[in-house]
């Protein structure tokens, strides 16, 4: 049991379409589900975890329907985004209860606690845990039955860098062992560090799929906007427009800023300093003006 298939799935809430005709397959290894906040990542994960019915289409685990089928949880481990847990239990009691619900006992619980390095705090009440500690106990509760498929919704939120690295190592080794690991994130760098395979969703649509280099190239090849201040904006503008890497220019004379739209990222970044040097123009400031994640993602949708 290792492949989750999302087949022509849409999901709407009233008039709002959260997921729009998405088809993807998540197989063994680590997959990153990337997208800005509100893109539909949680909706997708909830459907994969059997906590939401697709409005149309099918979500299956190796051909078996997930919705309303509690037997799939023998193979799925879920790390929800929500913080709420049984705060009145100690970490050990909580993980132990999760093991028992899988028909397992103390040994499985202790092993999972050791895996996430939470043994040192296992006798404290969960209510006293920090966000990172909660995240790790949640992780342990999802690992007790050593599932073939692990689903994690924004697992790195609230973790400090050391905990983040530890969790990344853990997920990497699970992926290498042939398990299916899917995690969502709105942070490109997180996904890039961990996932060989990336699925990008934007505004409920499946925007891109593939290895991260391909996605990265898509992202860097999009039109880039720069704001440039120099000793001679007009001369710089005329020199830049002669090259095909520059698609558009606007001279803001009042503020003394040259707005440049570049199409070939690599070529333009090499061109700009060379042109400036050749024409004896001093560059005071070069800053990208649309690096927000949303604009990066929205370009991907169009691509």
């Amino acid at each position: 049991m290792t492949t989750i298939r999302i087949d022509s799935v849409s999901r709407w809430f009233g008039n709002v379409v959260a997921v729009n005709d998405v088809t993807m397959a998540i197989g063994p290894g680590v997959t990153g589900l990337l997208g800005p906040n509100g893109a539909g990542k949680s909706t997708l994960i909830n459907m994969m975890a059997g906590f939401l019915a697709p409005s149309t289409g099918a979500v299956t685990l190796d051909g078996v329907r997930i919705w309303r089928n509690e037997q799939v949880y023998k193979h799925i481990g879920l790390v929800p985004e929500r913080e709420a847990m049984y705060d009145f239990l100690t970490g050990r009691e909580f993980v132990r209860a999760n093991a028992e619900l899988h028909g397992l006992g103390r040994a499985a619980a202790q092993k999972a606690l050791a895996t996430v390095e939470m043994e040192y705090a296992q006798n404290r009440r969960i209510g006293t845990y920090s966000k990172g500690m909660r995240q790790r106990v949640k992780m342990a509760s999802a690992l007790v039955h050593e599932p073939d498929v692990l689903l994690l919704d924004e697992p790195f939120n609230g973790m400090d860098p050391r905990q983040r690295m530890h969790l990344m190592d853990l997920l990497r080794s699970m992926g290498a062992a042939g398990r299916t690991v899917l995690f969502s994130s709105h942070i490109l760098e997180e996904v890039e560090q961990l996932a060989a395979h990336i699925e990008v969703v934007v505004a409920g649509r499946h925007a891109a799929s593939g290895d991260f280099r391909k996605i990265r190239r898509l992202m860097t090849d999009r039109p880039h906007h720069y704001a440039v201040r120099s000793s001679d904006d007009r001369a710089l503008a005329s020199a830049l427009i002669a090259d095909p890497s520059t698609a558009g220019l606007e001279l803001d004379q009042r503020d003394g800023i040259l707005h440049v739209q570049a199409v070939d990222f690599a070529r333009f970044t090499a061109l700009l300093p060379r042109v400036a040097r050749d024409h004896g123009i001093r560059l005071y400031e070069v800053s990208p003006s649309d690096e927000s994640l949303e604009s990066v993602f929205s370009y991907l949708v169009a691509a």
Partner: peptide, 15 residues
Amino acid sequence: DDSSIVYLLAKPVPR
């Protein structure tokens, strides 16, 4: 209410 019931429901236990 706080959706902690997920931990009970994401198990092979009949609802």
